[in-house]
Every structure is written in C-alpha cells, then in structure tokens.
C-alpha cells in the first residue's frame, strides 16, 4: 500500500513538475515579451513619427511602414482662387493610410533651422572634453589610491568615499555661485572643468587597478622603471575594459546632463546642448507643439548614444554590474 501511495505521489509530483516545465517558460516568455514591447515601442513610434507630417502624427491607427513618395512637402504653397500664394497643411489622410505613410524630412529641416547643429557640436565637445579629462584624472587618482604607498593614502580614500554621500542637488546652487563669482558662468569651461573628475570614476578605477597582479609592476620596477613610466606604459594599456566603461559612462552622463547645463549656460544660447535646446523649444512652442520637429530632435539626440551602446554593449553591462557588485 505504502509503495503504491508513494509511487502515486511521485507520479503526481513528476506530473506537476512536467506541467511546471511547460508553464514556467510560457509565463516567463509572455511577461518578457510584453515588457520588451513596452520598452521598445516608444522608440519605434518616435522614429516613425519623426518622419511624418504633423497631422499624420495625430492620426490613428498609427502607421509604421514608410512607402514612396519619399520626402513629401507637408505644408505646400498653393495659389488660391484669388491668385495669392498660401501655405496649406496636408491633411492626415493624404500622407498616412492604415499601415503605411509617406515619409517627410520636414521635421528634421525644422529642427535644423533651430540651431540644432550648434547644440549637437556643443554636446559632443563638452561630452568628449569631460570624458578625456576624467579618463586621465580618475585613473591617475585611482592608481595612486590603489597601488602607491604614501602617508595619507587611506585617509584620502575615505575622504573620497564620504564625498560620494553628498547628493548632487546640494552642490548645484553653490557651484553656480562659485562659477559666477570667478566669472566662468556661461562658458565652455563651466561645463567641463567642474565635471572633469568623478568620485565614481576614481572608485571604479581603484577597484580595477587592485585586480591587476602586483608582480607585473614589480618586474618593471626591477628594470628601473619609474611610477610614471609604469603607469602610462604598462598599466594604462592593459586597463582597456575599465577605461572603456568609464569613458562610456562619462560621455553618456555629460551628453544627457540637463540640470547642471540649465544652471550654468542657459542665458547664452550659443552654449546650449541638445537636451537644453530641446527643453527651451518646449517652452517656446507652448501648447502648439511641433511634434514632428520635436521627435526629430529626440532621434538626433538619442542616435549617437544608441550607436555607441550597440557597439560597446558589453562594457555598458559590465560597468553597471561592476557598480552593482561593489556597492
């Protein structure tokens, strides 16, 4: 009796297990696919609508497939009955059908007329500047804290760690005041120098350098190499993974930075970055949002980072998990 009963429960258990083996992946995939759609659809709609005329953006169902004629003029000038030239707006159903639409570059043209090239240059310049300086300063400091023995080493490390506790919002206004007092407000240095070293970067580089075997440097030292030579000739070349992660985070952080840029250069439009420019456009357009040019601007702002992301994905993920692991 007992044997039969136990076989039965065993069968029942293996039955549930088999059912679980089918059910779990089904539920799992369903959840993930829904999640993936929620994450990706806003991007797809943004891209497709940035190529539409304004009325077509508001049309439903949303068409997603571009078909010729390419590059239609959304607001053609026509000559009306009285012989005057007049601008009209193509109605939505002229350019957008159920699933297909005729693409236009009007949104891109409009946003390019809004100083966008300048914003793009500023964003790239500032982000690259911050990135290169951080690579240099953070790795130097990280190496010093990780490997060089000198009085004060530990104290300085704890000092750096404790600074990590200060939330950015506290530093925002006094930094603004400071830069204003020394006359750097509304200049490129204001967007680069204060950000040219990062606590997180020093921390990340220190952790990385500590993982390099000491024997390597000791061998070089026996050969008579000084610390500078060792650092620049030996350590930096083998630090590509950490340096790439730091480069990407710095570049991305500065490219997307809004609040600091808003405070430091907003009164000088030649220095605006892409996020700042777009935010000011929102204020300018008010309720009459020119969505096609807005979405075009969004695509241009996102595209460079997206490309970098797809190229260096591994480092993004490694960098994030690195911070996660080390707290």
């Amino acid at each position: 009796m007992t044997t039969i009963a136990s076989t039965q429960t065993q069968q029942a258990r293996s039955g549930t297990r088999r059912m679980m083996n089918v059910a779990m992946p089904t539920i799992g995939y369903t959840v993930l696919v829904i999640f993936a759609l929620i994450q990706i659809l806003p991007f797809l709609f943004t891209i497709s609508n940035s190529f539409k005329c304004l009325p077509a953006i508001q049309a439903y169902p949303q068409s997603l497939v571009p078909v010729p004629p390419m590059d239609v003029t959304c607001e053609p000038t026509i000559i009306d009955d009285t012989g005057r030239e007049r601008k009209t707006v193509l109605p939505a159903d002229e350019t957008s059908k159920q699933v297909t639409f005729n693409p236009t570059l009007d949104g891109y043209r409009e946003i390019f007329d809004q100083k966008l090239p300048r914003w793009l240059f500023n964003t790239a310049f500032v982000s690259l500047g911050v990135m290169f300086l951080r690579l240099l300063f953070d790795s130097l400091a990280g190496y010093s804290l990780a490997r060089l023995k000198f009085p004060g080493n530990r104290i300085i490390f704890f000092f750096v760690l404790s600074l990590l506790m200060i939330p950015g919002i506290v530093l925002l206004l006094p930094r603004f005041i400071l830069l204003k007092e020394i006359g750097l407000l509304n200049s490129y240095p204001a967007l680069i120098i204060p950000f040219s070293a990062s606590l997180f970067g020093v921390f990340l580089m220190k952790q990385f350098f500590e993982s390099i075997p000491k024997e390597l440097e000791e061998a070089a030292m026996v050969d008579g190499a000084g610390r500078f030579t060792i650092f620049f000739r030996l350590i930096l070349p083998i630090s590509t993974p950490a340096m790439t992660a730091l480069a990407i985070f710095s570049f991305q952080g500065m490219w997307n930075e809004f609040l600091q840029v808003l405070l430091l250069v907003s009164s000088k439009s030649e220095l605006w970055t892409l996020p700042l420019g777009l935010s000011f456009l929102r204020g300018e357009f008010g309720e009459q949002l020119r969505w096609h040019s807005f979405l075009a601007g969004s695509v241009i702002t996102t595209l460079p980072l997206a490309l970098i992301f797809f190229m260096f994905q591994r480092y993004f993920v490694e960098g994030v998990s690195y911070t996660g692991l080390k707290g």
Binding site: L136, L140, A141, S144, L148, K149, F150, G226, F228, F231
Partner: peptide, 8 residues
C-alpha cells in the same frame, strides 16, 4: 608620485 597622481 602618490600626491602628484592625486592632485588633479
């Protein structure tokens, strides 16, 4: 070297 590296 330690302090020089840290200075910036």
């Amino acid at each position: 070297a330690g302090y020089l590296f840290l200075t910036p």
